[in-house]
Write a protein that binds this DNA or RNA. Sequence first.
DNA 1: CGCGACGTTGATTTGCCTCAACGATTGTGG
DNA 2: CCACAATCGTTGAGGCAAATCAACGTCGCG
Lengths: 193, 193
Amino acid sequence: MKEEAIIKNVSRHIKLDEMEKNYFVNLLHHRILKKGEILLKYGEVCRYNYFVINGCLRVYSVDEYGTEHIIAFAPADWWTSELYSYLTESPSENIIDTLTAAELFEIKKQDMEELFVRIPKFERFFRILFQNAMVNHLNRLKQVLSIPAEERYIQFIKQYPFIFNQIPLKYIASFLGVSPEFLSKIRNKIAHS
Amino acid sequence: MKEEAIIKNVSRHIKLDEMEKNYFVNLLHHRILKKGEILLKYGEVCRYNYFVINGCLRVYSVDEYGTEHIIAFAPADWWTSELYSYLTESPSENIIDTLTAAELFEIKKQDMEELFVRIPKFERFFRILFQNAMVNHLNRLKQVLSIPAEERYIQFIKQYPFIFNQIPLKYIASFLGVSPEFLSKIRNKIAHS
DNA sequence: CGCGACGTTGATTTGCCTCAACGATTGTGG
DNA sequence: CCACAATCGTTGAGGCAAATCAACGTCGCG
């Protein structure tokens, strides 16, 4: 059944008994989304955490020139949210939508907080997630500043082959911080060497 | 007296009574450093949080080509640490040192944890700091990806004039992600327009 | 079938880097 | 306290990475 994936994911960091699993599962709201559906609009306060069962989401911003910058992908078995808006309850400057048809669970912030009080293990779980998000962002900043696009692309497809396979290349270009045309030239170069 | 600055800083987010202030102040270790002194070496586990009373620190990494990348400055009245190493107790890939003579307080991680238990308000305080750090990193990534170096420089001196005034320009170049020569050309261009 | 989204290719331009050289300032040892 | 070295900021020449713009073939989908 569909809750299996999320339980398995959580169990990677904390151990739950049957009661705890049941309590947790009852907080989940299951959603099925088409490609291109928006989960969080610009300016809206993010009040949910999302767990992706299958499909792929993206978190992105739009700069003053209208160019989109992908901050994060969220493929199957990943958690995502707009952390700053979520934590501070301020309007989000980023947008979350689906790049493919997708199935996910959402959990309301207030339910999360009750969960933390009742089962403190979950506080630990989400703190670990939060730390990992922080580390990922720092690594990306370091990479953008220090290694060329070609190598960043190679590392990306090694690290996230499952993302690479299911979405248009232009989104990967946006994530890497290069134009789609240039990514195409990189791919051409790699293929002929 | 020297504890005044840190109490004032903390009081911006939480209110403390005299007992709480005393307890907190007793955990602080005061240090005076010369320019260029290293607080955290590469590969060492970071076991402290630092509060800068005066002077300026930097957190930086060295890439595979030997180029330094400044991740963060810490001028007077700022907190700093190497969060990932601190939280996970793993060897740090970044280095912390002083760019000027400096005076600071350090707090041991284990003392912090006891502090959180005794005075939970501090947990809130550091969670807020942590969130802000996260937001700053995300903004920087967005800026590096979307706006040209010239504008990043202009924004930097607007936002951090006090840093700009006390350290060599080459560190600002490193923070912005450009070569010192190119920053020099940017400055020249701005001056003649 | 036809249209729009996608990926590619080529020509041109631009942002930024590297290397080298040079004054100016700072610091240091004799 | 001076002399010399090191650090710093700047300038110029040349080069490379990546952007922009335009055009074109392909393909999935309404």
